[in-house]
């Protein structure tokens, strides 16, 4: 028999009930089913196995078998992953799925094994929106001077500077308090995070900028992967793909529900006119291009040609 008794420690950073956690649970069920109960997947949520960088390093070293961080984290390994975070790149989820499911997504993942990681496909946290306490964002000028928490990532920091805000990198755990006290005016996250972290209690306005799509990369330790038989590899690949389908679907459903719940909790949600979005994109494009200059030109060209094709195919 070429399926052995194995245990996979699968870490993530979110709380129970979040679509990523549901994805991990789905994956665990599928693996158990396909392996006849021989391969067990144990879920370790809520950062109990450590921070993003610690867990990523643990996966590289084979101490932890799987992890599903944002692709933003993966850009520390292969910086071209930052292309996915290009602000205002996508207009809808079809474009996302076409890019990440196509040759660009594959090429990115092919860079991972030399860093000790095998990519098992893309899941999602979803589109990010802008929340603040001062006014609905209709025009780009409305963002001017807002003290905004962004992720500690140069592309994000520079992009939000270009949008006219005062970006502040701050640990997620300190964010609620900073917003409540007014130390910060604004933050940006997907609907589900704004809901589960109760930011609606401390932020009045949400503006649907959909400025960045946060994808998550399913990471598998290469040290572990190389011990597996072909059958085992196939089981895990299939389970990751199936769980991914499920995860993206439920994430998108939950985003709609979360949006309604945010409104029910008193948040004022407004859409942003297309010409304002175009203006914002014009402001951030030079930033993203500047970063892209330091990336592998082959991947940047592939990204650009793919995006051109995809925007035409899924307007």
């Amino acid at each position: 028999e070429d399926i052995k008794e194995r245990t996979i420690r699968f870490g993530h950073l979110v709380q129970p009930g979040h679509p990523l956690a549901l994805g991990v649970q789905k994956f665990a069920d599928l693996v158990s089913e396909k392996s006849g109960g021989k391969i067990k997947v144990r879920e370790f949520g809520g950062s109990v196995l450590g921070s993003e960088s610690q867990q990523m390093s643990a996966v590289q070293g084979g101490v932890q078998q799987m992890f599903v961080p944002a692709t933003t984290t993966a850009s520390a390994l292969v910086k071209e992953f930052s292309l996915i975070d290009t602000p205002f790149a996508f207009q809808n989820t079809s474009q996302v799925d076409a890019l990440l499911g196509g040759p660009f997504g594959t090429s990115l993942q092919e860079r991972l094994p030399e860093r000790g990681i095998v990519g098992m496909g893309f899941w999602e946290t979803g589109f990010r929106n802008f929340t603040n306490n001062r006014q609905p964002i209709i025009k780009m000028e409305d963002m001017r001077g807002l003290k905004t928490r962004v992720m500690g990532d140069p592309l994000f920091l520079d992009s939000f500077k270009a949008l006219g805000t005062n970006p502040v990198p701050m640990a997620f755990g300190e964010l609620y308090g900073a917003l409540e006290s007014g130390a910060l005016d604004a933050e940006e996250n997907p609907y589900s995070i704004v809901l589960t972290s109760k930011f609606y209690e401390v932020q009045k306005y949400m503006s649907e900028t959909n400025h960045v799509y946060t994808a998550n990369l399913v990471m598998m330790s290469k040290r572990f992967w190389d011990q597996l038989s072909d059958t085992e590899k196939q089981i895990l690949s299939e389970a990751a793909a199936e769980a991914g389908e499920y995860q993206r679907t439920i994430s998108r459903e939950k985003a709609k529900v979360a949006r309604d719940q945010l409104i029910a909790n008193g948040m004022e949600i407004n859409s942003v006119p297309q010409d304002s979005l175009d203006q914002m994109r014009a402001a951030t494009d030079p930033v993203a291009d500047g970063f892209a200059n330091s990336y592998d030109p082959a991947l940047v060209d592939l990204y650009r040609s793919e995006m051109k094709r995809i925007r035409a195919a899924y307007p």
Binding site: S51, A58, V63, A171, G173, E174
Partner: peptide
Amino acid sequence: DLFDAQILAQNVINGADSFP
């Protein structure tokens, strides 16, 4: 049955890495 020196090193060093 998961002996690995990296577990020690990883957790001891990341354990000191905390802004709070």
